[in-house]
Design a protein around this nucleic acid. Sequence first.
DNA 1: GCCAACGTTGGC
DNA 2: GCCAACGTTGGC
Length: 154
Amino acid sequence: MAYWLMKSEPDVFSIDDLHRENVAGWDGVRNYQARNNLRAMRQGDRAFFYHSSTNPPAIVGLMEVAREAYPDPTSKEPALHTSGGPGRRTSGDPGWVQVDVKFVKAFHAPLLLDDIKRIPALSRMVLLRNSRLSVQPVSPAEWKVLIDRLEKRG
DNA sequence: GCCAACGTTGGC
DNA sequence: GCCAACGTTGGC
């Protein structure tokens, strides 16, 4: 079983939204590295739900991969936000995918990014080294450290 | 295959 | 709202 961390802006999709829906498609990922991580996910893998672009940014919940990668239906639509210079979309299907995630729990006391930064064992976390990757792997050792802290807090 | 332009992410 | 970091595009 592998471990992951997935970011979402709570204004767009929050842990409460996932709690309400129980199972939801994690769509809209338009970054190749993040897509590759989505493709590597297996049913039953666990992932942290991270609230980004909010104050304070934090790990707020736990979820489970309920369905492995499948085509993201929104990816055929014209992109609302495109990166890079001006110009047309290039041809060819980049193969954007989504997974379904299932709510496991919401933490009463989220683990703030600021807390994570203070834990020496986590200094090499992708979260801290590449802050812009929205779907990222978490090593088993890092996972244990994080889970221990979170469970201790409730 | 380099790299300038430029758009997005996300913490602050 | 600012801006550093970084990804993508596309001309060359």
